[in-house]
């Protein structure tokens, strides 16, 4: 509590944390959209320099968890403390905390009306109040770092998806963040462009950047992550070292998920029942009328 009150009184410099310190603390986090509860009590702690990959089936709440860290989603209850500041506190200056958090989106969300360099300077100039030349230098360094030196004047529409995502990473890095959040950064990319983005992220991790990565790239998670969190149905089912979670999962749901992700064509005999259950459960919630018997041959349709 002492560190918190210190951070609150210090309004001029962004909050920082030393090595090994707690960067993010999530305590009993709940989030509902209307009557649907997406997060059902998440608690975890992330330390400086840690790379945490969050995996899980779609709809498991992993993106929502990430978006609660920088308050793009307002938690329904629970506490989120980022670098000593409780962002769930209504008195928290969230803009100041966000300026120290880098966020990378699935759909890149580059600003289409300004070029790559300006995408990387606009936050520095308008939020950090850096002089233009300093912001430009920093932006050029970061564009070079993500392999886009020379593309400063390109507009987002002139860049490939992979290049756009790397500009988005450079944009986030230009704010000198203490923590990077990645929300499925490669999910919207053509398969051949995924590698470039992942190698940039791998390099960041090796430099000691604290990262939370929501991803479906199991190989990346296994190679780069210090810790993997498996989520399903709004709770953390299992977390630990990637070799344990991805290599030797203990929980039934983790095993089933990994089998689907690592070999989508493979359906074990025992799993078929679960697959049927899931399909019908989904139909029930969406009100869809699709049933397995719809697949039986209809009279009049030749085969």
């Amino acid at each position: 509590m002492n560190t918190m009150s210190e951070a609150v009184t210090d309004t001029t410099t962004p909050p920082t944390a030393g090595p090994g310190e707690v960067v993010v603390e999530v305590v009993d986090l709940h989030k509902s959209f209307g009557s649907v509860e997406v997060l059902k009590g998440i608690s975890t702690v992330i330390h400086r320099g840690e790379v945490v990959c969050v995996i899980g089936p779609s709809g498991s709440g992993k993106s929502t968890l990430l978006r609660c860290v920088n308050l793009l989603e307002e938690p329904t209850s629970g506490r989120v403390v980022v670098m000593g500041e409780e962002v769930t506190d209504p008195d928290c200056d969230i803009d100041r905390v966000r300026s120290n958090l880098g966020m990378v989106f699935q759909q890149f969300n580059l600003f289409p009306h300004i070029n790559a360099l300006q995408n990387c300077t606009i936050g520095q100039i308008n939020v950090l109040k850096r002089p233009k030349e300093e912001a430009s230098t920093k932006a050029q360094e970061n564009l070079a770092k993500v392999g886009l030196a020379g593309r400063e004047s390109a507009y987002p529409a002139q860049l490939s998806g992979g290049q756009q995502q790397r500009v988005a990473i450079a944009r986030a890095l230009s704010m000198d963040p203490g923590l990077m959040l990645f929300d499925e950064p490669t999910s919207a990319l053509d398969p051949e462009l995924v590698g470039d983005v992942l190698s940039v992220m791998r390099e960041l991790a090796s430099e000691g950047m604290t990262m939370i990565v929501v991803t479906h790239e199991m190989a990346f998670a296994r190679e780069v992550a210090d810790r993997v969190i498996f989520m399903d149905g709004g709770v953390i089912v299992e977390e630990g070292h990637p070799d344990d979670i991805i290599g030797r999962p203990q929980e039934k749901r983790t095993i089933a998920f990994l089998q689907r992700v690592l070999d989508p064509t493979h359906v074990r005999a025992g799993e078929e029942d679960e697959a049927h259950y899931r399909r019908h459960a989904a139909d029930h919630w969406t009100g869809s009328t699709t049933r397995d018997d719809d697949l039986t041959p209809q009279p009049g349709i030749p085969h």
Binding site: D95, M103, F105, N109, G123, N126, A168, A172
Partner: peptide, 27 residues
């Protein structure tokens, strides 16, 4: 203007007014 534009702007730490003036209104 897609919602992601505001989210990206706010994620950089821009207050709502700055995000409107610099990101949303020009587009």
């Amino acid at each position: 203007v897609p919602k992601g534009q505001v989210e990206a702007a706010r994620s950089l730490g821009m207050p709502a007014g700055v995000a409107s003036r610099k990101i949303v209104l020009p587009q």
